[in-house]
Amino acid sequence: MTALKLRLLAVAICATVAAAHGAMAKDARGPVTNLPLPRFVSMKASEANIRRGPSLTHRIDWVFKRRGMPLEVTAEYGHWRRVRDHDNAGGWVHYTLISGVRMALVQQDLLTVHSRPDKAAPVTAAFEMGVVARLGECTIDWCEISAGGYSGWTPKTTIWGVYPEEIRE
């Protein structure tokens, strides 16, 4: 085979493997919980050591210090979950320090939320960037969030803690 044919064959193989991996990743389940991987959770504790590996003997790389912060679980091993935050910082955390309660992180300064999922709907509140809000119902483009006694609908693209294709009732 010529060098060009070998390169084309390598590209085709890589594309096939990537497509298969994408299909598998979409339907992946955790080997411990049988819950979807990846998935969003939140910090149950006010402080959590994030370790380099799944045991107490591994070095602590980070300490997350914000109760309710949304995290994405990307792997499971025994009582440990590999998580990452909105900045892609992460590592392994003990499962008792996280919760299945869904939260969202506001990613836009003075984010206005509306009374219904419509830009023309009345504004009910404005949230500062970095606010951690409880995640409610989500349509294909909008999510309902609440924090500090205020709630409303916002476009999904303005928050972190929900997948673009995710719908919540």
Rank of each mutant, 00 (worst) to 15 (best):
P31Q: 06
M69K: 04
G148W: 00
L9Q: 11
Q108Y: 14
Q108K: 12
T96I: 08
V132F: 02
A48L: 03
P36Q: 05
A120K: 12
G136E: 07
C138Q: 07
H94E: 12
D109K: 15
E137Q: 10
F127L: 04
A18T: 15
G78R: 01
A121K: 10
A104I: 15
S55P: 00
G68P: 11
M43L: 13
A133C: 08
I60P: 09
T96C: 02
K5Y: 12
G161A: 08
I50W: 02
V131I: 12
L35W: 04
L71T: 05
I50P: 00
C143N: 09
A18H: 12
V17G: 14
I140E: 11
A126T: 07
S146H: 06
T112H: 07
K44L: 08
M69T: 06
I140T: 13
A18I: 15
A48R: 00
G90L: 05
E144K: 12
H79M: 01
G22V: 07
F40C: 03
F40P: 02
A10N: 11
T96K: 11
R81V: 10
C143P: 06
Q107H: 03
G136L: 08
E169R: 14
A48N: 00
F40K: 04
G130E: 13
L97W: 05
E169Y: 14
E47N: 03
A48H: 01
D141M: 09
K65Y: 04
A25I: 01
L4I: 15
F127S: 01
M24R: 14
M24L: 14
T16D: 13
T2K: 13
R81T: 03
N34Y: 11
H58T: 05
C138A: 13
K156M: 08
L110P: 01
A28I: 06
A10E: 15
A45D: 05
G78E: 02
S115T: 08
E128G: 12
I60H: 04
R29T: 11
A126R: 10
L35G: 01
Y150V: 06
N49I: 01
P122E: 09
L111E: 03
L97D: 09
R29G: 03
D87N: 15
K65W: 06
A125W: 01
G78S: 06
T74E: 10
W92A: 02
E165D: 15
L6W: 10
I159R: 06
V41G: 03
A125F: 01
V63S: 13
E165R: 14
L97A: 12
G90E: 06
M69S: 08
K65L: 04
T139M: 10
P31R: 10
G22N: 14
A12C: 10
A20L: 13
V106M: 09
I140L: 14
A126Y: 02
G152A: 07
Y77W: 08
V132Y: 01
L8E: 15
A45H: 01
M43G: 01
Y163L: 10
V123P: 04
A3W: 14
D118V: 05
F64D: 04
V131F: 03
G53D: 00
V63A: 09
H58C: 05
V11E: 12
V17N: 12
P122G: 05
E137S: 09
